[in-house]
Structures are given as structure tokens and as C-alpha cells.
Amino acid sequence: MSKFLFPTEYYDSTYSIDFEQYYSLGYRAVLFDIDNTLVPHNFASDDKSVALMKRLKEIGFKICLVSNNKEERVASFNEFLQVEYIYKAGKPKASGYIKAMEKLGTTKGNTIFVGDQLYTDIWGANNAGIHSILVKPIDKHEEIQIVLKRLIEKPIIWLYLMKHKMKTKRS
């Protein structure tokens, strides 16, 4: 029923993902949503997100932020990360993800996407045919339109967990 909204995997946090394992499996690029995936909504990049990008680069990953935000928000967030980015990505359309892979020179088969929302992030990654990882949102305090989306996401996440008979991956 909701397979297009089901992530490939589900983690407690972006920061609990074993990216070294994904690299060993042949993945070479990670695409990220920003708000509530890397930092709370509308926050600047922080020490944790900067350290993660540095670690991913050291592993050998190419990185791109894929955001529906305006360029000003994405560019300022990226100031200390220094990775590629796509703004006004149009998620859940596949075009922003495809543009990111073209920028990085990667393919659907070796690219991962990490995001916190089913109806934009995961749906879009699935539309693009790439490995999708859903993470729990960092901050519970969100704008009303996102709070409403979270309410309709809950039964889909429940179905996903029942189908996979597993809990989220923790570290």
C-alpha cells in the first residue's frame, strides 16, 4: 500500500549510521536533507554536522545536501561543511536527487539518501531509485505543516516496522 513511502532502512539518528559499512558495500555518495536530519529546523551547521562531513570525506564519500529550502538557507548552512548542494530541490520529485548524483558523478546504485520526512525525503529518494534511510527528527518542535505531516506519517512508519518486524537501528 505505502511501499513508495517505505524507507530502505530506518535509524534513530543520522549520527548512528555506520557509514563505513555502506562504503564497504560499494556506496560512494551520501545525499542529506538538512533540517531535522543534520540539525534542528533552521539551525546553522554545528560541530557535530561538520565532524560528520569531515569523517565521510575521509572515508571517501562524495556528499551533497538536497533541500527544498531557498539557496540562502542551504548556502549558509554549507559554509563550514563545504559540500555540494541542491536548493529548491522539489522533493518528492526525483529531479533534485538526479541533479545531485550528476553533480557528484555517481549513480542510483552507489548513492544513499538520508532524511527525516516520509512525504518529501523518502518518497523522493524512492522516486529517484536510490537507497533511502529515514531517521527520527532531531527536534520535536516544528512548524505546524510539518507537525501535521508527522501525524499522517505515524501509521506508515508503524506499518513499515510491522512489515520488517524490527525496531530502528541504534548505536
Rank of each mutant, 00 (worst) to 15 (best):
L56Q: 06
D33G: 06
A51H: 06
T37Y: 13
D35R: 05
F19I: 02
V50H: 08
F32V: 01
D18Q: 11
Y27Q: 01
V50D: 13
S49N: 07
D46T: 03
F32G: 00
E20M: 06
K57T: 08
D47P: 03
L38R: 05
Y22A: 02
Y22T: 03
F19V: 09
A29M: 08
I34F: 15
D33Y: 11
D33H: 12
Y27A: 03
D33F: 11
L56R: 00
Y27R: 00
E58L: 14
D47W: 06
I59R: 02
S45F: 04
K54R: 14
R28E: 09
Y27W: 09
S49P: 06
P40R: 07
E20R: 04
Y22Q: 07
A44M: 08
L38K: 10
I34M: 12
A51V: 12
I34P: 13
D47T: 14
I34D: 15
I17V: 07
S24W: 00
G26S: 01
D33C: 12
K57S: 08
L38F: 05
H41A: 10
Y23K: 11
D46K: 02
L56I: 01
R55E: 11
I34N: 07
I17W: 04
K48T: 07
K48I: 01
L56N: 08
N36I: 09
F32L: 00
D35V: 12
R28G: 03
Y22E: 04
Q21T: 08
K57L: 04
L52P: 09
K54F: 02
F32W: 14
T37S: 15
M53L: 11
R28H: 09
N42I: 08
P40Q: 12
D35A: 09
A44R: 14
V39S: 07
L52R: 09
A51R: 10
A29Y: 06
K48N: 11
A44Q: 15
R28T: 14
F43V: 03
S45E: 06
H41S: 09
I34V: 15
Y27M: 05
N42K: 13
L52Y: 08
R28K: 15
Y22K: 04
E20S: 12
A29Q: 11
E58C: 10
S24F: 03
F43A: 13
L31G: 07
L31H: 08
Y23C: 00
A29K: 04
D33K: 01
L38G: 15
H41P: 03
V50R: 13
L25M: 06
G26I: 01
F19E: 00
D46G: 13
E58K: 15
A44G: 02
D33S: 02
P40K: 04
K48L: 02
S24T: 03
H41E: 13
T37P: 10
M53W: 00
E20G: 08
S45G: 11
K54T: 12
M53C: 15
I17P: 01
L52F: 13
E20Q: 03
H41D: 14
M53P: 00
A44T: 10
S24I: 01
H41I: 15
D46S: 01
S49D: 04
L31D: 05
K48F: 03
D35L: 11
Y23T: 00
V39P: 09
D35I: 01
N36L: 05
V30W: 12
Y27I: 05
E58Y: 04
K57R: 15
L56P: 01
F19S: 06
L38V: 12
Q21D: 10
L38Y: 10
